[in-house]
């Protein structure tokens, strides 16, 4: 075997640690050099945005945050964008979590966004947090008919009846939108199946990119719009920033998905590079083997 074929063999069976190294470098360098690219919103993302924009002021929106720290890097930008848009539109936000750690995610957006950027919005009047309840889709099915059957207090232990924005709210049937951020089970699918469809409530939301293909079949009948992963979040941010130019001022704060798309794009290119490389070496070696077989 000549030297060329030795190299080809080496590349063909490349130790996966080399792949890891290149992917690592791709992420690190693109993060350091802060590469960003423009985003063109796709119809599914646009539908989510337009649905929120079409809601009259004071409409009730339930925001289930069904994710945890593991998927936070991918889902937090869209959660932030949802909350900002709802706050801009003066919609009443009801946060809820079916994942134990989802309540921490809710606490995060309340602290970092609502209390910091929208201090005029008041807890209990403009937004409230139901907190976490175990029971997965069971919780969704119950609150569709009777919220107080499960929730007598909010996440902070305040009696539900004493919260102004809960006055006259018995269940979520009268809500105008379910806007979820979901990383798996229970998540968007359960909100569609146990609340959106039986309760005739519009459902829109975002999920991890891996989960998105599973949810496409629900669009557009049972799902107003769907946002898969960081790319969709970046497109959503682009739409929000276009309508509310103040968000264009501080990219690091308001357009985090757009900033994170840089490393994703470069990593995709690195993966494409490896796929091309693997195929070239594979074809060279296959041809060599065929020639050797012919000689024999």
């Amino acid at each position: 075997m000549n030297r060329f074929h030795q190299i080809v063999e080496f590349v063909n069976d490349l130790d996966k640690r080399w792949v890891f190294l290149v992917v690592g470098l791709a992420v690190v360098t693109s993060t350091i050099f802060r590469l960003t690219f423009p985003e063109i919103p796709t119809p599914m993302v646009r539908s989510v945005y337009e649905k929120v924009e079409s809601l009259p002021e004071g409409s009730r929106v339930i925001l289930p945050f069904d994710y945890d720290p593991a998927s936070e890097p991918e889902l937090q930008p869209m959660a932030n964008a949802f909350v900002r848009l709802c706050a801009e539109r003066n919609l009443k936000m009801y946060f809820i979590a079916l994942w134990p750690l989802g309540q921490n995610m809710v606490a995060g957006v309340i602290d970092d966004i609502l209390q910091t950027e929208y201090p005029h919005l008041e807890y209990g009047r403009d937004y409230m947090d139901f907190g976490y309840k175990s029971g997965n889709e069971g919780v969704v099915a119950v609150i569709l008919t009777d919220i107080k059957k499960l929730y007598t207090t909010d996440a902070h232990g305040t009696a539900i009846d004493s919260i102004p924005m809960m006055a006259g709210v018995r269940n979520i049937r009268g809500f105008d939108l379910i806007l979820t951020v979901s990383a798996g089970y229970p998540g968007l699918k359960e909100w569609i199946q146990y609340a959106g469809t039986p309760g005739n409530i519009p459902v829109a939301g975002g999920c991890t990119a891996v989960q998105a293909p599973l949810l496409y079949p629900y669009y557009p009948d049972q799902l107003v719009g769907l946002m898969g992963g960081i790319k969709a979040a970046a497109e959503f941010e682009a739409l929000v920033a276009e309508a509310y130019p103040k968000f264009q001022e501080d990219k690091d704060r308001f357009l985090t998905a757009l900033v994170r798309m840089g490393p994703q794009t470069v990593t995709h290119l690195a993966i494409i590079f490896f796929i091309v490389l693997g195929n070239i070496t594979f074809q060279i070696l296959r041809r060599k083997r065929q020639q050797e077989a012919l000689k024999r």
Binding site: K16, V23, S71, A270, N279, F282, Q283
Partner: peptide, 19 residues
């Protein structure tokens, strides 16, 4: 742990996507 996926997707793609 979740971020590991990016690395594993790359290594699995390199191995699996051969014509």
């Amino acid at each position: 742990m979740f971020a590991l996926l990016a690395f594993y997707v790359a290594s699995a793609s390199f191995r699996a996507f051969r014509a």
